[in-house]
Design a protein around this nucleic acid. Structure first.
Length: 266
DNA sequence: CGCAGCGCCTGAAGGC
DNA sequence: TGCCTTCAGGCGCTGC
């Protein structure tokens, strides 16, 4: 699933190739999740940014084209239109190139909105500071976590205390910080540890070009490599890399969380 | 307003 | 081999 490192990898690849390009035409799957793709036709791309897991493309008519990749979304610039039943939207660029949005499970979402107007995209409107921005501070993170009584992993996935974290990197960070996934309140010190762990795992994931478990591909169609160094996610039953205790997994709030029963205390 | 629960989706994997 | 069930889970929506 594309989380911050995967989305940022794609953003860095697309930015130089999309900037200044005119969008000649567009087409989308009939679902309302994707039909706003057409609203970008006739505009020119000014630049492409990112907030959390949202790609935000600035257009020269004052709109922003907003893309969330969901679980299985990917983007690629192609010389023609690929024969692929899972292309849910495409934009035709000048020079007969296409920006193609592929999403097998259709959990992704495309919107076109006046710049900065995110009322119709609640998660984007309400999300916290991007995890790799200077606005993500240990103290601010601690204060944000204190506002909710939900379990810490659930809070992370809500995007409200911090933006860009999904189950993979969240699971890794909780393992590094030694925080049990059932916890609802953590100390200031633990919040500082979790803050540091989140930055650490997200930067490592980005340096590895993301995590490819099954679907994720970058804009060149390549896999990431961070799946080879995951310490906790997907390793239930295998020995903890710190203490050799077998890792366990349990479902909390409809999400599977893997953790070390020894190192991650309640 | 916070939050729990559900629905959206489809391919892969496991059981029989 | 083939059918069926389960699982993966980010996010929007509904209703308490």
């Amino acid at each position: 699933m594309p989380e911050l490192p995967e989305v940022e990898t794609i953003r860095r690849q697309l930015a130089p190739r999309l900037q200044g390009r005119r969008i000649q035409d567009a087409h989308s799957h009939e679902s309302g999740k994707f039909t706003p793709a057409k609203d970008a036709v006739g505009t020119t791309v000014l630049g492409i940014g990112r907030r959390g897991k949202y790609l935000i493309t600035s257009l020269d008519d004052g709109q922003e084209l907003i893309i969330h990749l969901g679980m299985t979304g990917s983007l690629a610039i192609t010389p023609g239109l690929p024969e692929d039943p899972y292309i849910r939207a495409w934009w035709q660029l000048d020079g007969d190139e296409f920006l193609a949005y592929r999403d097998v499970r259709r959990f992704g979402r495309i919107r076109c909105v006046p710049a900065g107007q995110y009322d119709d995209i609640p998660t984007l409107a309400l999300q916290g500071p991007d995890a790799l921005s200077p606005d993500f501070t240990p103290e601010g993170f601690y204060q944000a976590l204190r506002k909710s009584q939900r379990r810490i992993p659930t809070q992370l996935l809500s995007q409200r205390p911090v933006a860009g974290v999904g189950n993979i990197y969240g699971t890794e960070a909780l393992w590094i910080a030694g925080i049990h996934p059932a916890k609802r309140r953590i100390s200031r010190l633990a919040a500082e540890r979790l803050h540091g762990a989140l930055v650490q795992v997200l930067e490592a994931g980005l340096a590895d070009g993301g995590t490819t478990l099954r679907d994720y591909r970058n804009a060149d169609g390549d896999e990431g490599s961070h799946q080879h160094v995951l310490a906790c996610y997907g390793r239930s039953g295998q020995p903890c890399l710190r203490c050799a205790t077998p890792l366990q997994h349990r479902v909390y709030d409809a999400r599977t969380l893997t953790f070390c029963p020894q190192c991650q205390s309640r």
